[in-house]
Design a protein around this nucleic acid. Structure first.
Lengths: 355, 355
DNA sequence: GTTAGCACTCAGCATGATCGAGTGCTAGCC
DNA sequence: GGCTAGCACTCGATCATGCTGAGTGCTAAC
């Protein structure tokens, strides 16, 4: 069933007022802010219709109306207009990326912080996750006696260190020789392939290979659970969180990366920005929240997530623009790193960021 | 002026009751829980004395008494008894360290989490900070064209990666040769020394050396501002935080590492556990909080901080035991890494953690 | 020095009155 | 038939009022 134009306007105003103030709005107050050329009684009638259609609801009998999840969804899909970020704002953001350390971790953290600040909600960013990690290079560094440090860099430029304990003392010369000999041999191999190689090898080589495989495995797992979240303080300050247990629930959810396991299954590939409202998130504790999320690409084989988490009454339009733009920026930055040559030079602004 | 034994008992009970419940306690209720063999009127008189001495205070006229900061300090210094952690608990903790990844970051994060869980407050841990970072080893890894990755490990086993852009394309062979030649030459040098070396060198070498120096500098700065904090969720759940702005203030403080700049100047070297109560922290926003903190050692040249942050009514005895034990554990773990040979084998339990 | 007794204080809680934003409904108007 | 003016009604929020109980300080007597 279609909504009339007037119904759409009313729904739109109710939603926008709700997003602005967080409170219900009634027919009279609505007309004060948005003269519609009709009387409040008419608005009431229309609101009644919208309520039977489950676009609006009343928190209690004598209160104004508030949009339902369905209403919000309709608003996001049909009524809202999303502008691109202004050039000034784009510049401000890219400027920040230019100033930060040349490290993936810094980029992701910054992206989360930018999302948070600009939208007033929690900014979420996951590291790029590869289907499978491949070794780019490893190095063994003797610490003392039987202890050594394994440092390795993967194809996706993820980096990992771990402490090793050999069964007998080893010196740096041996270790260097080992890495020099082994590196070319196992470059671009994945965990399984390296483990397979370990089988035929001498004990020393085998144990190094196994450690490397283990590290790759660890990285894969870590990529699947790590999450940069910024801006909790801002969200907590909002009136929705006057009751402390909400804040608690939110912290709890972010801590274990529980949000990830909710978000990931719902995102099919594609560059589109997705808006998940309340029960879309399929988790009771997340019912009061909404998420605006997009994937970003990092080379051909891997991609990450980036988005905004806030109360249902978040400013969707703004969040969507921000998420879309940042997905673009981060994809570009990652593209550089992951060796995707095609676009080099096509966009000097982003290229310049690496300088 | 000395407190009589009875006054000490009363102060002790008031503090313990306050810590347990967070509420004021009056003379009658005190006698219900702790029979002192005197009447409530006597207790009232003594409480009156303690109040004029600024050990107790009344939130309002007809309420019970609550300890003042002075009272808490007296309690911590004279009345409280701190036991060592039970062997069972020590075992549980060291077991957790045995299970975690062999990485400094994992250790510190775990330490913060253990502190948080066991004390019900926020666990804080800083990474070890060196007076000055020295290079242990670096590696250059070609990514594509003019882009390369610099990975370096410092004496303190801190690890750092950054993205480099050379002025012209370089291949992996050149880079490997470079690192092989340069590594022995600049091993154990600090930032300044490496910068000095850069002056006489060829352009290519000079730029690599400068990048390395910059990375060392970055690491030093980062060590001074990084902070692992766990357990915010728990603290926020406590009744003190019913008002949301408290939670906000706390998040705000932790975010910028502001706490560090407060804590650091107050800790003179030494292994002692220090208790800072309310205004000891010299920061208005931290007035309602207390901190139990200790340094841990990481080799001879560097050390970090480790502690618990919670409301003034935290369980001091328990926090102190926890902080003391964890400082011990972390010092041992770090000692291994930082190449401090003296104690190896002295403590098999801790040694075993590296396995 | 201790205690029983007493008048007093005051936060917390429940009760009740008032206010006002908002509603649904009906009768009349264009 | 759609729109609107008017009206009775609902109900959360706010504020004043009263009561209760935990707690106090003081005094007089032991």
């Amino acid at each position: 069933m279609e909504l009339t134009e007037r119904q759409q306007s009313i729904l739109k105003y109710v939603v926008e007022e709700y997003i602005r103030t967080g409170r219900a709005i009634g027919s009279k107050a609505l007309l004060d802010r948005f003269p519609l050329g009709v009387s409040s009684a008419t608005v009431r009638n229309e609101m009644g219709v919208l309520e039977t259609l489950d676009y609006l609801q009343q928190p209690h009998t004598s209160a104004g109306r508030v949009p339902t999840e369905r209403g919000l969804r309709y608003y996001v899909e049909h009524l809202m207009q999303t502008d691109e970020l202004s050039p000034a704002e784009q510049l401000m953001i890219s400027h920040q990326f230019r100033q930060v350390e040349q490290q993936v971790a810094s980029w992701l953290k910054l992206a989360a912080a930018v999302l948070a600040n600009a939208s007033g909600n929690v900014g979420l960013v996951t590291p790029p996750r590869s289907r499978v990690e491949r070794l780019r290079h490893f190095e063994l560094i003797n610490l003392r006696g039987r202890l050594a440090l394994l440092v390795l860099v993967t194809q996706s430029s993820a980096i990992h260190q771990s402490l090793l304990e050999f069964s007998e003392p080893v010196d740096q010369t041996t270790l260097s020789a080992l890495s020099q000999r082994l590196n070319p041999e196992i470059r671009w191999l994945d965990r399984e392939q390296i483990e397979r190689k370990a089988r035929g090898a001498s004990p020393l080589v085998a144990s190094v290979l196994r450690w490397i495989a283990e590290a790759l495995h660890y990285l894969e797992r870590q990529q699947r659970s790590e999450l940069y979240a910024e801006g909790l303080d801002q969200v907590i300050r909002q009136p929705e969180f006057a009751r402390g247990d909400m804040a608690y629930a939110l912290l709890e959810l972010l801590r274990g990366g529980m949000i990830l396991s909710v978000l990931l299954p719902q995102l099919e590939p594609g560059d589109e920005v997705r808006v998940l409202i309340g029960s879309d998130l399929h988790l009771r504790e997340l019912r009061p929240f909404s998420v605006v999320v997009s994937a970003y690409r990092a080379g051909d084989e891997s991609s990450g997530l980036l988005g905004v988490l806030g109360p249902q009454r978040m400013a969707y339009a703004r969040s969507i623009s921000m998420v879309r733009y940042l997905a673009h920026v981060v994809s570009r930055l990652m593209g550089e790193l992951y060796g995707e040559d095609e676009n080099i030079g096509a966009d000097d602004a982003v290229k310049g960021m690496l300088n």
